[in-house]
Design a protein around this nucleic acid. Structure first.
Length: 767
DNA sequence: TGCCCGGGTGTTTTT
DNA sequence: CACCCGGGCA
């Protein structure tokens, strides 16, 4: 095969070793995707393996799509089309639909997204009369998710000593019960959450040897990309499927494992050899992406980690420029420095915007960067954030689609039963929900029988509910015979959603309407993509969309913009010029991670990932003060900067930096002088919020004529009598926390005990 | 039913 | 600080 000469020796060996267990440790930028692609092409083209017998699992839909395209180029699209290639979730969702009945689910089960799951948990917490402040849906969901990723069922969870203790320690002893009820509700709704797609696949393969046998023999060759990011549930699926032939090839880089916090287990890659003693291991160590300086700097950092597979990434590329370090007095100034640096880089090196990326640890950091780029008229695009499919109006219409496909889907049903408003209020709904939970029948079942069930609802209400049921049924009758776009449009029109948004002429309303049009266009495209003769249904559309994220959509209008994203989101990407910002202790590495070695090592890997995105030049920046929770906080440079061997660093730019003592006012002032003086930017500079001044005043001197707000937080002591605008008079029982987030526990005469943040509470001292 | 206000809370992430 | 949520009120 002629394409094989495009590979280096290590890559070639990894491609040619087609049978048996193989592990490819692929350093950053070492041509990992190339090896996977050619390996599959080799199996297809040279070894005569049938595409239907190959299973390739990737981390994102995007990766799967790109790889399929590349393989298509080599062996032809029709052949590539037959590969089973996709994310764990999408591949096993497909299999679960085929085998659904075996584990007691209908084929049309709904996939709940994270929002659905959290809403469901929220209603369960309410039902159990638990405190929502204690049992926060997000946290409970996290617990349940990690249980599922470790294949711990609700029953097992309730008896799991570790889980019981953890929950007790965190003050949430009833998580196990919530989990059990949550699972019951999912079942009643014929729904699975993301983790269930993997959990239930495990159940399916465990309890049905015939099914296991079938897929073991179907997938004679299994390839797993980003193996370092698999969790236990995924690991076990792969292990079971591969057990018959052991033609399994995993590709990954332990140094780039950055998802442990959501259940990924780096041990999966470290222990692969134990599972398959015959493993042939290949190391791809030549980096084709970055300059010598960047590669060596990255090495010098990652070698500080204890947990790793020994390897040395090297490159033949030129040494390139050293890594620049920028130091700023504040987060805003950091933005300005980075923006002006970008400006210079563009001027001096003929660089396009799309060649540049700004990477940060947390999303919140994007704002200072945005403002600075905007002021210099540098176009940018932020990755991440609210996804198209999570927008309210989109979710609303999708909820109709979901209800039509699976009327048992309670989260969707609850969402739309009274939207657009049709006189079915909360009271009515809660009666129905209660009846549903008591009888263990779905809400839909109750609604279908609403006319004969004695729920204490009046005649007109029952009438309206019945009309709703009839409407959904009329849509459902079109599922099999109506063209998917026609049906979708009919739903959007008949329900009145389109009309409702069309009449809203505010900018937001217009944009919502546009979003619905975009969704409908998506359905139209989907129906026209129809390659085989079989008509694609609305259920097919939802199946495709449920596991899609914005990153998977092709971006049309991002052809020349600076990319801004979290380091996590940058994995697998590369840019000639990379700026890693906010390199400060307690930010990167994150405050949450500096206590244990394992977590700190993950932060270090994260930094390694960030650094190795850069092809030509990397710039690191930090600020000595930063706004956090509305306060200025002092910060120290990140240990990761110091961990880079100094011979690869260029500190000269930090010397001209503005002194850390500078006040925020001067900061804004200087930034004003640094930027092009167009009238527009002049206006913008006046729109700045004057954040720090107020805070400072209240922290240092006692209320200098503060606008009748309340007394200075430092003056409050335990035992004092105070008064509050709303709660009236009370007595301070306890003072907690540090300035400026001091909390007071106050017993009010009329309202009982409350905890108030002094900086907000506007408390007055009596006498 | 929807708006306003006070209060609470947060700042990895992806399927 | 900025955003979200729930409660109170019109």
């Amino acid at each position: 095969m002629k394409f094989l000469d495009e590979l280096n020796e290590a890559q070639l060996q990894a491609v040619l070793s087609h049978d048996g267990p193989n592990m490819v440790i692929a350093g950053a930028g070492s041509g990992k995707t190339k090896v996977l692609t050619y390996r599959i092409a080799y199996l297809l083209g040279e070894k005569g393996v049938d595409a239907f017998n190959i299973l390739a699992l990737t981390f994102t839909n995007k990766a799967a799509k790109e790889m399929k395209e590349r393989i298509g180029h080599i062996v032809g699209n029709s052949e590539a089309q037959n590969l089973w290639m996709g994310t764990f979730h999408s591949v096993f969702a497909k299999i679960l639909r085929i085998e659904a009945e075996k584990i007691g689910f209908p084929r049309n089960f709904t996939i709940y997204d994270t929002d659905d799951s959290k809403n469901l948990i929220k209603s369960i917490v309410k039902e159990m009369n638990l405190d929502e402040k204690v049992y926060k849906p997000g946290q409970v969901y996290g617990r349940i998710s990690s249980a599922k990723n470790n294949l711990i069922s609700p029953q097992a969870y309730l008896q799991n000593a570790q889980a019981i203790m953890d929950d007790r320690m965190s003050g949430k002893p009833r998580v196990g019960e919530i989990y059990a009820l949550y699972q019951k509700r999912l079942y009643k709704a014929s729904a699975m959450d993301f983790d269930d797609l993997l959990f239930n696949t495990n159940i399916l393969l465990r309890d049905h040897p015939d099914v296991l046998h079938k897929y073991q023999h179907k997938f004679k060759y299994i390839l797993v990309d980003e193996y370092q990011d698999t969790n236990f549930s995924q690991y076990l699926i792969v292990k079971k499927l591969a057990a018959a032939f052991e033609n399994i090839c995993v590709v990954g880089d332990d140094a780039q494992s950055i998802y442990a916090f959501r259940g990924a287990n780096i041990q999966n890659i470290l222990n692969f050899k134990k599972d398959y003693p015959d493993t042939k291991m290949f190391k791809l160590e030549q980096n084709y992406r970055s300059t010598g300086n960047i590669v060596k700097a990255a090495n010098s950092v990652i070698w500080k980690n204890k947990d790793q597979i020994k390897k040395e990434v090297w490159t033949q590329n030129e040494e390139g420029e050293k890594i620049t370090v920028l130091r700023a007095g504040s987060d805003n100034e950091e933005g300005n420095q980075v923006a002006s640096f970008i400006f210079d880089v563009k001027m001096n090196n003929q660089v396009q915007n799309k060649d540049i990326a700004i990477l940060y640890r947390t999303n919140a950091q994007s704002r200072a960067m945005e403002e600075a780029l905007r002021r210099r008229n540098i176009p940018y695009k932020i990755f991440g954030g609210l996804s198209f499919y999570q927008r309210k109006e989109v979710k609303d219409l999708l909820a109709y689609f979901r209800t039509v496909i699976n009327p048992n889907d309670e989260e969707s049903l609850k969402r739309i039963v009274n939207y657009p408003a049709r006189g079915i209020g909360d009271t009515t709904l809660s009666k129905i929900i209660m009846a549903s939970n008591e009888s263990d029948k779905s809400i839909w079942y109750i609604l279908e029988n609403i006319k004969v069930l004695p729920l204490g609802l009046n005649q007109p209400t029952r009438e309206r509910l019945d009309q709703f049921v009839q409407m959904i049924k009329s849509f459902a009758s079109g599922l099999e015979k109506e063209n998917v776009y026609d049906l979708a449009l009919r739903i959007a029109q008949t329900t009145g959603i389109l009309k409702e948004l069309y009449s809203d002429k505010t900018p937001e309303g217009v944009s919502r309407y546009d979003n619905l049009q975009e969704l409908l266009n998506g359905v139209k495209e989907f129906s026209e993509e129809n390659k085989d003769d079989t008509e694609r249904t609305l259920a097919d559309f939802m199946q495709e969309i449920a596991l899609l994220t914005d990153n998977d959509k092709d971006d049309e209008d991002n052809f020349d913009k600076v990319s801004m994203m979290t380091v996590h989101a940058s994995k697998g990407l590369e840019f000639p010029y990379v700026f890693i910002v906010g390199l400060e202790e307690n930010l990167f590495p994150s405050q949450l991670s500096i206590e244990s070695r394992e977590e700190l090592e993950e932060e270090r890997r994260l930094f390694y990932v960030a650094l190795t995105r850069a092809k030509k030049r990397a710039t690191l920046s930090y600020a000595t003060t930063r706004f956090k929770w509305g306060n200025i906080q002092h910060s120290e440079p990140s240990r990761f900067i110091e961990e880079i061997d100094t011979s690869f660093l260029d500190y000269s730019f930090t010397l001209g930096g503005i002194k850390p003592k500078q006040t925020a006012f001067e900061d804004e002032f200087s930034s004003y002088f640094n930027k092009p003086k167009t009238s527009q930017s002049l206006n913008e500079s006046f729109q700045f919020k004057q954040k720090p001044n107020l805070t400072k005043v209240s922290q240092t001197s006692a209320s200098l004529g503060s606008v009748g707000q309340g007394d200075d937080p430092t003056l409050f002591k335990e035992g004092m009598a105070v008064s509050h605008d709303r709660f009236g008079e009370g007595k301070i029982i306890e003072i907690q926390g540090d300035l400026p987030n001091v909390k007071a526990v106050i017993e009010f005469k009329a309202h009982g005990v409350k905890q108030l943040l002094l900086k907000f509470a506007k408390l007055k001292i009596l006498n």
